Simulated assay, not measured.
Amino acid sequence: MWRAVASNGITLLIVLLFLMGGLILWGQRQYVAEGPLEGAICLRVPSGSNMNRVSRDLAERGAITSDTIFRLGADYSDKTGQLKAGSFLVTEGASMAEIVDIVTRGGASTCGTEVVYRIGVTRIQVQVRELDPETNRYIEKAAFVPGEGEAPTAYAQVREEADTRYRIALAEGVTSWQVVEELKDVDVLDGDIAEIPPEGSLAPDSYEVRPGLDRVALIAEMQARQEAILSAAWQNRADGLPIASPQEALILASIIEKETGTPEERGVVASVFTNRLEAGMPLQTDPTVIYGITRGKGVLGRGLRQSELRAETPWNTYVISGLPPTPIANPGRASIEAAVNPDETDYIFFVAKTLDPADGHNFAATLEEHNQNVAAYRRLEAERDQ
């Protein structure tokens, strides 16, 4: 009798072990299987949260099939204690294993609210925007110019949220003085910049920053990026260029940047200046004259006078031969690459097509063609002034 009971007990135990093993195997498959989420969501994990709260939130939003399996999977993979605060983009069909990796990986938030400080040629603008997970596009919530009235309530609200992201967007063609002045209005940064960085040394780019970052550290990052861009471009330069060093390439790139209204024209504009340098002709470009007047400190805000075109400054390319002594702005990557790899043309002249700089230029290889293009532009000016 006892032998029969023992035999039945062992059989039952084996069955239970098989069932448990099958259950574990099923749970593992569920953990790594495609999830039920039909559209991307932005998952916010507040500071001080835990895996229990996260799993309940995900279950309520239909992102996971089982909050229990989610928690057990996080425990089994030793990731429960690695939960990070932030806002994270969870894509359509993400598995529980993928979601656990997303919320424990660390690094910057991938969705939610972002504040962008756009440093432009004329001013700084602050934009509060939020990523729409469904379209993966940002929706603007508020925008304002510091110093022009009070900041909107939306800005104050997101400043109080721990997972708000901050970004500095540096426009192509800004001067170093403008960057330093406008960084003063970025109230999430700390510290003062004692000296204006050398003109051209800052890379126009997008920089993610954290509250409390020192402004000097940000400037150093901008300089490091520009140095890397310039070094790579110089190593891949075309043969036979009329420029002798990376610094000369940076100077030429800054002129291309200020003369180019449309991105697709950079290579052609670069060819004009390259052809002029090779021919020993003055560059005769207005932005260099303007820089000689302003030294990069603000915008001239008016047309150039004939006396200014004749005035002798180190940057007046109507008077000096060759390149000016320094860049006249901070050029972007595309202008730097155009400076060292210009298009091959025979153009030595160009003038705006219309009164809108975005319409580009008319290029010419002869003075006769150029004069015709200039006459057409003058007629547009006359029509405007009637």
Rank of each mutant, 00 (worst) to 15 (best):
G9L: 15
T11E: 08
I14K: 07
G21I: 03
G22H: 04
Q28I: 05
R29S: 15
Q30W: 06
Y31H: 09
Y31K: 10
Y31I: 05
E34K: 15
G35K: 07
C42M: 02
R44K: 12
G48K: 09
M51C: 11
N52D: 15
R53D: 12
S55P: 09
D57R: 15
E60G: 11
E60R: 15
R61M: 12
R61D: 14
T65M: 09
D67V: 00
I69K: 07
A74P: 02
Q82T: 07
Q82I: 00
G86T: 01
G86V: 00
S87H: 01
L89A: 00
S95E: 03
S95Q: 04
M96L: 00
M96C: 01
A97F: 00
I102V: 14
G107H: 01
E114T: 12
V115N: 06
Y117R: 02
R123V: 01
Q125F: 04
K141E: 14
A142P: 11
F144I: 01
G147D: 02
Y155S: 01
A156Q: 12
Q157Y: 09
E160G: 00
A162C: 01
T164M: 05
R167G: 00
A171I: 03
E181V: 14
E182N: 13
L183I: 14
L183C: 11
K184E: 15
D185E: 13
D185S: 15
V188I: 14
L189H: 13
D190F: 04
I196C: 10
P198W: 03
E199S: 05
G200H: 11
P204Q: 07
D205V: 00
P211K: 00
L213Q: 11
D214G: 05
A220V: 09
A220C: 04
E221S: 04
E221T: 09
M222L: 13
A228T: 12
I229M: 11
A232I: 01
A233E: 06
R237F: 12
R237H: 10
R237T: 07
G240Y: 07
G240F: 08
L241Q: 08
P242T: 08
S245A: 03
P246R: 04
A249L: 09
S254F: 07
I256V: 15
G261C: 06
P263V: 02
E265M: 09
V269W: 01
V272Y: 04
F273H: 07
F273N: 09
E278G: 13
A279Y: 06
M281W: 13
P287E: 05
V289R: 12
I293T: 08
K297V: 10
K297T: 04
G298D: 10
G298C: 11
V299N: 12
L304C: 11
V319P: 02
S321L: 13
L323D: 06
G332L: 10
A334Q: 07
A334V: 00
A338D: 03
A338E: 01
D343K: 08
D346L: 04
I348K: 04
I348S: 02
K353N: 05
D359I: 03
G360E: 02
L367E: 08
E368N: 06
H370W: 02
N373P: 01
A375S: 10
A375K: 06
Y377N: 06
L380E: 11
E383V: 07
D385E: 14
